[in-house]
Design a protein around this nucleic acid. Sequence first.
DNA 1: GATTAACCGAGACGGTACGTCGCGTCTTTTG
DNA 2: CAAAAGACGCGACGTACCGTCTCGGTTAATC
Lengths: 212, 212, 212, 212
Amino acid sequence: MQPAEPVQSAARPVGRGAKVRAAVHAATLAELLDKGYAALSVEDIAQRAGVHKTTVYRRWVDRDSLLVDALADHLATDLPVPNTGAIETDLRALARSLVQMFTSSTGQAILAAMFTGAAHLPEIAAARRHVFDDRLTRGEPVVARAIERGELPRDTDAAELLKTLAAPIYLRLLITAEPVNEATADQAVRVTLAAARAGALRPARVSKAATG
Amino acid sequence: MQPAEPVQSAARPVGRGAKVRAAVHAATLAELLDKGYAALSVEDIAQRAGVHKTTVYRRWVDRDSLLVDALADHLATDLPVPNTGAIETDLRALARSLVQMFTSSTGQAILAAMFTGAAHLPEIAAARRHVFDDRLTRGEPVVARAIERGELPRDTDAAELLKTLAAPIYLRLLITAEPVNEATADQAVRVTLAAARAGALRPARVSKAATG
Amino acid sequence: MQPAEPVQSAARPVGRGAKVRAAVHAATLAELLDKGYAALSVEDIAQRAGVHKTTVYRRWVDRDSLLVDALADHLATDLPVPNTGAIETDLRALARSLVQMFTSSTGQAILAAMFTGAAHLPEIAAARRHVFDDRLTRGEPVVARAIERGELPRDTDAAELLKTLAAPIYLRLLITAEPVNEATADQAVRVTLAAARAGALRPARVSKAATG
Amino acid sequence: MQPAEPVQSAARPVGRGAKVRAAVHAATLAELLDKGYAALSVEDIAQRAGVHKTTVYRRWVDRDSLLVDALADHLATDLPVPNTGAIETDLRALARSLVQMFTSSTGQAILAAMFTGAAHLPEIAAARRHVFDDRLTRGEPVVARAIERGELPRDTDAAELLKTLAAPIYLRLLITAEPVNEATADQAVRVTLAAARAGALRPARVSKAATG
DNA sequence: GATTAACCGAGACGGTACGTCGCGTCTTTTG
DNA sequence: CAAAAGACGCGACGTACCGTCTCGGTTAATC
């Protein structure tokens, strides 16, 4: 019987592999930023990453799946759940973090890719939803605490509230192309709170009376 | 937004021209609906229109400008301004018309094209803004009348209100991919009215004190 | 093999097509001569022909079928049947024409391609046999006339005789790589005639081994 | 024609080395037989030999030199010089041994490789010539003895005679693709003897009279 | 109702990028 | 130390669609 050596077996990252992966990811985002989704070319990405085209194709089946992977990798950052003791400042933190996410220059590029260029890819659609759901999940405790503190009606619908908070920001980013900044975030908070306090963000009533 | 040879009015009706134009437009939208923007091919469109590829290129410089033209042509429809005598029903009409616009099957295709596939094209961006501004313009008198009737605070910002109304609908269409229907519209109205009545939709205050 | 160009009447050769075809054929043979079969690249051929790679692929499915076509085109030349009145001089003409065929510089290249590089392609094998059969056919009357003149035994097997004539030439070309020239041809004639006159070139006699 | 590490005799038995070498050789020939030269792949050979690709490259610089080595290894068999007492039976033995060599299934594969697929390689060309010269060398005493016995003219050129013997066999193998069997060999003998006895296989006369 | 200029059909072409394959090299881990 | 394992650079392959071009043949407004 042999003395079991410190078995580092399990995974074998091989070393170079990880470096290549990172370089290509970075190059992908850089190219995305420079030229946009439509003009992304695997060859250019590879060259920028100091890597050969075939190497890219060895790791990613597709130009698209490379992009998806790079974006997913970039978005894998979870922010902390704010807890300032007051709903207004909590929401402000959430809204502002959303604004920040998409106003850096890379944020812009990612936004463009996720919502316009590569939007047609199912994985990107999934990523989009995932990012959003993530923020919803993170926001729920904030609402719950506010309800406990009596700042909001008991049956306030957290998801609805958070969507109301995010909606105007996305609208400006994606449709009206107005500048988006902290003021935008703050205004969203104001509207959301007003609606919530007025009880407009409780679960949809099932009454079918609302017609006409 | 017109093709290379827009009206040419007086001189010559040219004959075939108009028919070709229409057929290609139709084929473009049909292909868009079937395959989506990414898979649009001029050759396929031409074939579907019963026309040769070169004929398409004779009238439109680009695949993209063909698409832009076809979409512009399709969107050239102005809805009436609602005037029911009450802000709630007026807003409901506006919101529901927005929902309707993007839930028909062609509406879906157009939405996808305008906001995802072809979103990177400046003309499409312009069209997007144009459509939106158009709805803003149409909505302003509605708000004005409500203010006169005393249903809303005097200094309510019409544009802000209408964006608040539209935002959650777009959010669901473009991001969360939740089903969008009349209930969505009605809920948007509820939130918007609550915020407006609470005074949260007045012009942004200039104070730079807004720091949580 | 070329349709006389001036006549654009009945069919529609489109004009350019024929020129491209010829240019590519020429370039193919030239490259074959320069670099040999193993190093043939479609891109290089295309460039040499002043044509784009895709154009080559539009007309020929394959690198190989391009080569086959170019060779076939080049080999489509039928020499006259010699008729000098004496079997010796007739055979000498045949043998020398064979030698000539494969000793020009392009002949060498073609030889190499047909018997070594591209030999594995069924079409090339077919072409090889075709060329040989063609020479057999052309040689038969020569033998027939010699028999009539009484220069050869009545039942001399023409095919056998012609193979005996060609065999040592091919042997030197393909195996021993000795220089091949008119003397080689003449020596082949000498041997062939000696064998024929001695009656060694009559149909395989006897037994069940009559395979031909 | 030896691998990177030829004999290394005394020093070290190398252990695995010889086994690997043999396995790869066998696998090479097997693959050659299955798929032909054009489709030979180092990876497949390695796998068939139960060995890793890099191991192959450690021992042979090239795919081609591997093949050359494998073939050389296979061809290193010298047959005995026939001596039956009569030129006819001696030649028949030689001719039949040639036929046998290339009609076994592996013989076919080797033939194809040496004369078509890998023919362009200098080492293969050398091997080809070597094999042939070997047979010439082996045949010379046969001719010498026949001359001594008075069966052939004194100045009969042995090399020329043996080429005349081999040529029709190679012709059928490589060009006409006719079936080759003992009858073919025997017919070659008949022709060769007839020519030799008629004095057509004496050294080439230098007279330049032979024209037209 | 013939003329004629604009328009259309047909199809090859140059060009860019795609994604694939196999060679031969290199580095790291294992026996 | 040699072999296994497997990523990598590299070059060519063959494909798809873009937008361009040239040539004939059609068509429909005008004379």
